[in-house]
Amino acid sequence: MKYNLSFILLFVIGCTSTMISTDKREILYREKCSGCHRLYSKNEFSKEEWESKLPEMYQNANLSPDEEKLLNEFLLK
């Protein structure tokens, strides 16, 4: 019984660790953007739609120019 529980815990830990992103652009997106609205899929809007929406969102989120650049790289490419 102890072994079964150990294997289940190892399986769950292994699955969750693969879902955690280390991409600093994605981390920034999750941290800064989820405070105001749900996180949108990058493919949910066209490049033109993102480009029209992002400046206002960046201003509302009080992002630095470097953060804006990272989010542009993440969302537009």
Rank of each mutant, 00 (worst) to 15 (best):
M1Y: 09
M1N: 13
Y3V: 13
N4G: 14
N4C: 09
L5M: 09
L5Y: 12
S6M: 14
S6Q: 11
S6G: 04
F7G: 09
F7T: 12
L10Q: 07
L10P: 12
F11Y: 10
G14M: 03
G14F: 04
G14P: 08
C15M: 13
C15P: 07
T16N: 10
S17A: 15
T18Q: 12
M19G: 07
M19F: 10
I20W: 02
I20M: 10
S21M: 01
S21K: 06
S21C: 01
T22G: 06
D23Q: 05
D23K: 03
R25K: 15
R25C: 03
R25A: 09
R25P: 00
R25D: 06
R25N: 14
I27R: 01
L28T: 02
Y29A: 06
Y29R: 15
Y29L: 05
Y29H: 10
E31M: 08
E31L: 09
E31K: 15
E31R: 14
K32E: 02
K32Q: 11
C33R: 12
S34L: 07
G35M: 14
G35Q: 13
G35H: 07
C36I: 08
C36F: 02
H37S: 06
H37I: 13
H37Q: 04
R38W: 10
L39N: 09
S41D: 15
S41K: 12
N43Q: 12
E44K: 08
F45I: 06
F45C: 01
S46C: 07
S46Y: 02
S46P: 00
K47A: 06
K47E: 10
E49A: 10
E49G: 01
E51D: 01
E51I: 13
E51M: 15
S52F: 12
S52V: 14
K53G: 04
K53W: 01
K53V: 07
L54T: 03
P55A: 00
M57G: 08
Y58N: 02
Y58F: 12
Q59W: 05
N60Y: 11
N60S: 13
N60F: 06
A61Q: 14
A61R: 14
L63S: 09
S64H: 00
D66Y: 13
D66I: 15
E68C: 08
E68I: 11
E68H: 05
K69G: 07
K69P: 14
K69W: 12
L71P: 00
L71E: 00
N72I: 02
E73V: 04
F74Q: 09
F74P: 01
L75V: 07
L76E: 07
K77S: 04
K77W: 08
K77F: 06
